[in-house]
């Protein structure tokens, strides 16, 4: 067997952007992160679920369900955000440390394809993680709903139930079968993807993963202040001040708009237009931040 037997690669003068290459890198990134034992988060999530559903059983059904919903949504938010930030921050440094980035980027691969593959892989993984957690969450909610409803009925059937009992059951359904929960989880996912993109951008110029993680933590902590930054920007009279504040405002995404936990628990209806607008905002932000990351990465000396 010899190498001559193989057809030499055809002469090419140009090389177009290839989604297939992005996909190869994305799936590889997913494998990489999964091999980092990231899926153990499901155990954490399960523990949070058990805690939430057992802590508040002595209270009214509303409080019990509220605590489950609070805990689950908070756990989804926290765990996806952590995976997004920490997982993404490790990607580039580990590629550089293992020198795999050299073997990839010296192949006919565009740097933007590499970066996009990394971000897409991470987002796909987070999608999977979010779905699994949501399914667990839904299962616990339904089980709890069944228990609470049968408790409320106390052996009678729904048709024979009295007015207040029916009202109780409806109130239980309003909490457990709330379509707004799905919207809330969806927005939490959008937030996680935005965090992936931002972390990737930071790690294109950061010198270590620790540095990226710290920067992202600061951004995450400051995110609730986005509204205030927005107000201050509007009230700033001088152009120079506005430009200065613009940079600060640019760094702080409005993550609180994507956290609807409180309102969903309080039974507020979340308008579809709101979900769309917030998703659009997150998508554009993700895109812009990714573009910045790509600009910097393009010029990065490895």
């Amino acid at each position: 067997m010899s190498l001559e037997a193989v057809q030499p690669m055809q002469e090419q003068d140009s090389l177009s952007f290839s989604p297939a290459r992005v996909w190869v890198i994305a799936t590889n990134t997913m494998t990489e992160v999964i091999r980092q034992k990231v899926l153990y988060v499901f155990i954490l999530f399960g523990l949070a679920l058990c805690g939430a559903s057992s802590f508040f059983t002595q209270f009214s059904f509303n409080e019990e369900l509220k605590s489950i919903i609070d805990t689950c949504l908070a756990a989804i938010k926290l765990l996806t955000a952590l995976i997004a930030v920490v997982g993404t921050a490790m990607l580039l440094p580990s590629e550089i440390e293992n020198r795999t980035i050299y073997t990839i980027l010296t192949k006919p691969v565009y740097r933007i394809e590499f970066l996009l593959g990394k971000v897409a892989g991470m987002s796909l993984l987070l999608f999977f993680v979010t779905i699994v957690m949501s399914v667990l969450f839904g299962a616990v909610l339904l089980l709890d709903e069944k228990a609470l409803v049968s408790h409320a009925l106390q052996g009678t059937s729904l048709l024979q139930a009295s007015d207040p009992v029916k009202q109780t059951i409806n109130a239980i359904y309003a909490q457990t079968r709330n379509p707004n929960l799905i919207k809330a989880i969806f927005l939490l996912y959008a937030q996680a993807v935005l965090l992936v993109s931002m972390t990737m951008m930071v790690s294109t110029f950061a010198t270590s993963s620790l540095f990226s993680i710290i920067i992202m933590l600061v951004i995450y902590m400051c995110a609730p202040l986005a509204t205030i930054a927005n107000e201050v920007w509007k009230s700033q009279p001088s152009i120079l001040g506005r430009v200065g504040l613009m940079f600060i405002s640019f760094c702080i995404p409005d993550l609180s708009s994507m956290t609807l936990v409180d309102d969903v628990v309080a039974g507020k209806h979340v308008l579809m237009s709101y979900v769309l607008s917030t998703t659009g905002y997150a998508a554009l932000y993700t895109l812009v931040v990714f573009a910045l990351g790509a600009f910097i990465f393009q010029e990065k000396e490895l």
Partner: peptide
């Protein structure tokens, strides 16, 4: 350039989101 173009869009969009939120009683 990107920061300069995107920042005002971001601020305006956020304002719009907050307006929507207030209208539907969120936050």
């Amino acid at each position: 350039l990107v920061v300069l173009i995107f920042s005002p869009v971001k601020v305006l969009w956020e304002g719009d989101i907050h307006k929507l939120a207030r209208a539907s009683g969120l936050f």
